[in-house]
């Protein structure tokens, strides 16, 4: 149970026992020093947790792992489909898009090492085509990677 030091707690403590600091007559142990100490401990833990979560969410590695999972499932589920409409409407592809701009460096790394139609995710997230003239998937990937280097999104 969590308590914070507060004037509002005084009536509560008095109501429980005539001797608020005695542990003999009641199971409720009310020690102001302990309460302060616990309160500080609890809140530091919460702060640590939230900092850790924030760091974890922003972590590139975390995005890469999620992206890899979505890509694997996307490829598996659309393996025999020729329809681009079905490929981009697949839930896993939508999940890739939902990662948004923070996933762009990871996507660029993926297509840098293995050019593929994952490049379409960049069309949707960034909102433009890398070339005004028709290009192959490989050419498109190369151009996007160059764009990524130029914009300091990948090293």
């Amino acid at each position: 149970m969590k308590f914070s030091k507060s004037i509002s707690m005084i009536p509560l403590a008095l109501a429980i026992s005539n001797n608020a600091f005695s542990s003999i007559k009641t199971n409720f142990v009310f020690n102001e020093d302990d309460l302060i100490k616990n309160f500080i401990t609890i809140n530091q833990d919460l702060i640590k947790d939230s900092k850790r979560d924030a760091a974890f969410m922003a972590d590139d590695q975390y995005i890469s792992i999620r992206l890899r999972g979505f890509i694997d499932n996307w490829r598996k589920e659309t393996k025999f489909s020729s329809s681009i409409s079905k490929m981009v409407q697949n839930t896993n592809f939508k999940n890739i898009l939902s990662l948004g701009k923070p996933a762009v460096p990871a996507i660029l790394n993926e297509i840098h090492f293995a050019p593929s139609n994952l490049v379409w995710a960049l069309n949707y997230i960034e909102g433009f085509n890398i070339s005004k003239t028709p290009v192959t998937i490989e050419e498109a990937c190369k151009k996007w990677v160059k764009w990524g280097f130029n914009n300091h999104l990948i090293k």
Partner: peptide, 23 residues
């Protein structure tokens, strides 16, 4: 893809994609 392969092309995915997608 198959639509390109049917006409012996291997340089793009032939599909009426909207919006236009790279490749």
């Amino acid at each position: 893809n198959c639509i390109a392969w049917a006409v012996n092309r291997k340089d793009a995915l032939w599909w009426p994609a909207v919006p236009q997608l790279d490749g």
